[in-house]
Write a protein that binds this DNA or RNA. Structure first.
Length: 847
RNA sequence: GCGAGAGUGGCGGAAUCGGUAGACGCGCUGGACUUAGGAUCCAGUGGGGAAACCCGUGGGGGUUCGAGUCCCCCCUUUCGCACCA
């Protein structure tokens, strides 16, 4: 046992001015590891508390200061909960699959199977130095076959439940990278890594998860889960629920050209019965959130990819429409959606009958309508939609006002789209209704004739999980000519990712695994005929969607997670991470949890009881970046100042949930504080100093205990540290030296922030067990309340005096004391008009 | 454009319920100790003014006995999302 080995740490008599963090920190890190202090017995633990931090991607650059900041904030909360009596589980792992690692491996020419273990080892070394309360016996990596076996298993469960399906979908294709690139990697239509190279659109067969089936539940639970409000808002926006209606339009070719509606500014009469439509296709459905404006719908627009486009287009217009659709199809997916782009489009030659007005309105094809939202078709109301207005203006289509706002009427000209509230006009029997009443009335009116129904739409799309890449878990599917797509039997999992030298993607649009026949040729699990494995791998976000379930059960290889352990430890009590994952990771995790819940494998459907987003660290007022040369290397600071000072400074430089500015000079103040703590304990331990504590100091101590505890609870670490510093200033005011009873609880308060020095001082004070097996000090409510106050005296709201008085002074007494103060009396002439008394705080005399 | 934040001394930041603006720290000034100081300790430190006092939380209005905090308008800025009908 380490306690019997001679300590390399110098003793602390005479209150040495400073201590050597290197020795202290090494000593305690070794001791924690040897004693298993941070590895709770997960099967038996009482008062279980799961303290989770988003696991890092193990980059080659090593631990980023942002990681240290986040991990430290997480650790402080975990250590605090432990001192409050919980058994805390604080695991760690590595999110090591994905395009990030793969691209880096390609760049340096090292195989990811060699690179990743190296990076992870470096991360481990750096993380250990930070002094986290990590349970290293439950470490995991998403690249471990023992882990991704269960990632593949989850895929199969979704498949079984009809929540995984395959379809052709558009992707961004960089001809230079010879691979699919994410939307985020497309800049101005060009590849991020190949400026000047236009990204193209390609269509590939891809696997999807039906997350949209859970859209409503994902939205509703946001009302009760205890998460950062900013994160919940981001999720609500991402899910993007809109209520509206689907409206059906009869479509056809025009036979008679009376009552022209496509030229001039004339208002459609609403009685356009003179023309006749000969049907070209089945009726067309559009989605709108503004059914109230249907009397102003003067044309229809289809997305270029809409399946009815060929049917709808008349023979004369066919060539032009096809050319337009082809051009739109080639464009990359990002620049297609730039708002400022000029509107383009082409007339199909066909017309639709407006079910409200009976008028025939032209059908256009334009790329400002997106196939992936709603029905891929819209009714255009240029009078009340900015995009439709711009389009109608560009192509000379009629613009009709059907909503009149304050001070407007049916004839007020429209210089731009009016999107505000108001009353319906030019809308037949619905005139004078408000916008909201109008929506309801018009939808029910149309619904009677089968022309409309209320519909809810979501912006959320199904989750595409296919990646035509190498560095991920192979999707466990086998394609057989006879039997079709077959799931890999569960007992055959994992489908191991093979080691291949040529993991670089090429321009075939399929994964590098598709070049390895020896790997993908396998017998069909159903009929035994030779068949072919799926060569795509799954998205990294699937790896990270369930890792928190695995941590407590890492030693099991026959199931993803143990039911009993899971009941004891989950859902996660406290989850902390960056807001860059506000939507994707955090939404996918919730989705997978709900699915597992519906399968009866989990008794909760929300994975994280509380989630708090931490802030970002900048350096000397600027974002850290390699090109700026201001990237902070944690090793350097830990070498120079010690992990304790580094941790404490990171938590001191700003509010944890907002981040802050790292300035090198700032650390010295925190280091000085720890040195003063060290000196105080040394002095207090001298025999001649073990006097009775000072009651005034004890009062301050109890106030500090309360404040620090409250602050840690709401992650207000910077103010907790400030409070401890303030107490230190009282403790050592003037030439004063601290007494033992005054300083011992302070060591406990400091321990979540600076665990090593706290352990060392705790030991010096004669304790044999770790400080983290002790209990957080209780504060005395009677001492917390101030005995005397400085009553603020205002005259007309201006501070004129501060008078020391007992805290419980009554109004009469307080006012009398105030009035007799010369500085106050000077401003009070005659009888006051009014006197405000706030007990324990102030008196305001109004004259 | 839409959504969510932020704007307070020379700097990082406090002010939890509408009640002392500037806690705590950095930096700076002066002093003590010292062969020495980039160590330690003590005192001071929003601006103006000799003082009494006056002014001060991005700008302008308002509510209130009282506003950094609440309401309206505007400016700047960070981060998301971006033709979602």
């Amino acid at each position: 046992m380490t306690s019997s080995t001679p300590s390399s740490v110098a003793p602390n008599p005479e209150g040495q001015a400073s201590y050597n963090p290197t020795d202290v920190e090494r000593k305690w890190q070794e001791r924690w590891a040897a004693s298993g202090l941070n590895s709770p017995d997960l099967r038996r633990a009482e008062r279980a508390y799961y303290q989770l931090m988003m696991f890092p991607y193990p980059s080659a650059e090593g631990l980023h200061i942002g990681n240290v900041f986040a991990f430290t904030g997480n650790d402080i909360h975990g250590r605090f909960e432990r001192l409050k009596g919980h058994t805390v589980f604080e695991p760690i792992g590595f999110d090591a699959f994905g395009i990030h690692s793969e691209n880096y491996a390609l760049k340096v020419g090292v195989h990811p199977m060699q690179l990743i273990p190296r990076n992870i080892e470096n991360f481990r070394r750096q993380l250990r130095r930070v002094g986290l309360m990590t349970d290293w016996t439950h470490e995991l990596s998403t690249t471990d076959p023992a882990y991704y076996k269960w990632t593949q298993w989850i895929f199969l469960q979704l498949l079984k439940r009809g929540l995984a399906y395959k379809k052709r979908a558009a992707v961004n294709w960089c001809p230079e990278c010879k691979t699919v690139v994410a939307n985020e990697q497309v800049i101005n239509g060009e590849c991020e890594r190949h400026p000047g190279v236009k990204v193209e659109q390609r269509f590939l067969e891809q696997w999807f998860f039906r997350i949209t089936a859970y859209a409503q539940r994902l939205l509703e639970d946001l009302d009760w889960i205890d998460w950062s409000e900013s994160t919940k808002t981001a999720q609500r926006n991402w899910i993007g629920r809109s209520e509206g209606a689907e409206i059906v339009f009869e479509i056809g070719e025009r036979r008679e050209e009376k009552g022209e509606t496509t030229s001039g500014k004339e208002v459609p009469s609403g009685r356009g019965g003179s023309s006749r439509l000969s049907p070209l296709s089945s009726p067309l459905s559009v989605f709108t959130t503004r059914p109230d404006t249907i009397f102003g719908a003067t044309y229809l627009v289809l997305a270029p990819e809409h399946p009815l486009v060929p049917e709808v287009t008349t023979r004369e217009r066919r060539a032009e429409v096809r050319a337009y659709a082809d051009r739109a199809g080639k464009q990359d997916l990002v620049s297609r959606k730039v708002t400022e782009r000029e509107k383009t489009g082409v007339f199909t030659g066909a017309y639709a009958r407006n079910p409200a007005t009976g008028t025939d309105i032209p059908i256009w094809v334009a790329d400002y309508v997106l196939m992936e939202y709603g029905t891929g078709a819209i009714m255009a109301v240029p009078g009340h939609d900015e995009r439709d207005f711009a389009f109608a203006t560009a192509f000379g289509l009629p613009i009709v006002r059907v909503v009149a706002g304050e001070g407007q009427d049916a004839n007020t000209p429209l210089a731009e789209a009016y999107v505000g509230d108001g009353r319906l006009v030019n809308s037949g029997q619905f005139d004078a209704l408000g916008v909201e009443e109008g929506k309801q009335a018009i939808v029910s009116w149309l619904a009677e004739r089968g022309a409309a129904k209320p519909v809810v739409n979501y912006r959320l799309h199904d989750w595409c999980i296919s990646r035509q890449r190498y560095w991920g878990p192979p999707i466990p599917i086998i394609y057989c000519d006879a039997c079709g797509a077959q799931p890999v039997p569960e007992q055959d999992l994992p489908v191991q990712l093979p080691f291949i030298e040529d993991f670089r993607p090429d321009d075939t649009g399929v994964s590098p695994l598709a070049r390895h026949e020896e790997w993908y040729r396998v017998p069909c699990p159903k009929c035994g005929q030779m068949a072919r494995r799926e060569t795509d791998v799954s998205d990294t976000f699937l790896d990270s969607a369930w890792y928190f379930l695995r941590y407590p059960s890492t030693e099991l290889d026959d199931r993803p997670f143990d039911a009993e352990i899971t009941r004891r430890w989950l859902p996660v009590d406290s989850y902390i991470g960056g807001n860059e994952h506000a939507v994707l990771h955090l939404l996918y995790t919730r989705f997978i949890t709900m699915v597992l819940h519906d399968m009866g494998l989990l008794d909760f459907e929300e994975p994280f009881k509380t989630f708090r987003a931490h802030g970002l660290i900048i350096h000397d007022g600027a974002k850290m970046s390699k090109s700026r040369g201001n990237v902070v290397n944690p090793d350097m600071y830990i070498n120079q100042w010690g992990a304790d000072a580094f941790r404490t400074y990171l938590m001191f430089l700003g509010p944890f949930e907002e981040g802050g500015d790292f300035r090198d000079r700032g650390i010295s103040g925190v280091k000085r504080f720890l040195d003063r703590l060290w000196a105080s304990v040394g002095e207090a331990e001298l025999p001649e100093r073990s006097e009775e504590p000072d009651p005034a100091v004890m009062r301050k101590l109890h106030q500090t205990i309360k404040k620090v505890g409250d602050d840690i609870g709401r992650l207000s670490y910077n103010t907790a540290i400030a409070a401890m510093m303030e107490y230190m200033n009282v403790l050592r005011a003037g030439e004063r030296t601290a007494r033992r009873a005054e300083v011992e609880p302070l060591v406990q308060l400091v321990s979540p922030f600076a665990p090593h020095i706290a352990e060392e001082l705790w030991e010096q004070m004669g304790h044999e067990d770790s400080i983290f097996t002790s209990r957080w000090p209780e504060y005395d409510q009677g001492l917390v309340a101030a005995e005397t106050i400085e009553l603020v005296v205002q005259v007309n709201g201006k501070v004129r005096a501060r008078i020391p008085l007992p805290a419980d002074v009554g109004q009469e007494e307080a006012v009398a004391a105030a009035a007799s103060d010369p500085a106050v009396a000077k401003f009070v002439t005659g009888t006051p008009k009014k006197v405000i008394f706030v007990p324990g705080r102030l008196v305001n005399i109004v004259v």
